[in-house]
Amino acid sequence: MANYNLDITHEHCPMTFVKTKIELAKLKSGDILNVRLTEGEPLQNVPKSAVEQGYNVLSIVETETKGVHIVVIQK
């Protein structure tokens, strides 16, 4: 099980989830993707869309940077 990181704090909806899906497609089943994103629309939509499309959202963690979160997704 490998661990990968993706920063989409500079992306806007819907490219936030598009970029997430592109990265997830490169992973093997069981691998972890840590997605760094901003609150508001990305935080609302990315974990929700990931679950809808069959991925596991393991946790959502606030970072030390204000308004930035890490969504941990397992493929």
């Binding site: 819907p14 490219m15 598009v18 970029k19 899906k21 592109i22 497609a25 809808e52 499309q53 069959g54």
Partner: peptide, 23 residues
């Protein structure tokens, strides 16, 4: 591997669960 332009161009397909990156 899709380049940045292709990711943009096909983004509405990639978003679809039934298409996605593989489709």
């Amino acid at each position: 591997d899709f380049n940045e332009e292709q990711i943009q161009r096909y983004s509405r397909h990639i978003l679809l669960q039934d298409v996605g990156v593989e489709g």
